[in-house]
Amino acid sequence: MIVFQKPHALTDVPFHYCPGCTHGIIHRLVAEAIDKLGVEGRTVGVASVGCSVMSYDYFNCDMVEAAHGRAPAVATGIKRALPENIVFTYQGDGDLAAIGTAETVHAAARGENITIIFVNNAIYGMTGGQMAPTSLPGQITQTSPYGRDVKTQGYPVKVCELLSGLDGPTYLERVSVDSPQAVKNAGRAILKAFTNQVEGKGFSLVEVLSTCPTNWGMTPVESLEWCRENMIPYYPLGVYRDKFAENGGGEK
């Protein structure tokens, strides 16, 4: 009896991610959601620019690689052309919350019936550890070598809070993957974000607090602790919007 196996929606291509990176977990959660809903054959994913750029090789569904920041616009084009298909983007913080802010905000404002998986690790990973729009105040990165100074480098962008100011989004939730329990919870949220689309409910975004041991200069275990101790207090977990919740769609 098989008790554990790779989801069908993942290919056999080995991940290129650094040891301890949580992208692998999040990829798996996305693939599990696609499997559970049985929609792989009609799913088109949009990869973005950042560490997850090569996710087009990892997901078994049709994949389109977008220019930096433009994934929500590309996904909009695909979804409008193929309204019966399931369209998701998989984006990092630089892609979604810096260069792609306009695309993100307006796809959300339109209530575009797509699913966005937003991986926030508070740093630019692929280019080697520069300050991200979500880097924490005081956080040391290659381009904030003395720590992010909010006087000159501004404050982090809280995406769920930002988007919850709009009428368009259906579902906004922030989760983390820093413990087995958290991973389970993240899986639930990601499944819900895909289910919403299948049911035609509209724009869903799940922000997943993630880690970057390589560029944070920590071991994987230390990274998870840093996420728990520093990121989660700044980026509170929970549901920020759920239009279809039983209690009438309370906001955090």
Partner: peptide, 23 residues
Amino acid sequence: VFMQAESEISAVNMVYGVAATGK
């Protein structure tokens, strides 16, 4: 489908998305 995008950048990327579906 008529879409007024939020910018020319977005518009051309929506075209990229539609074109990717072969339409």
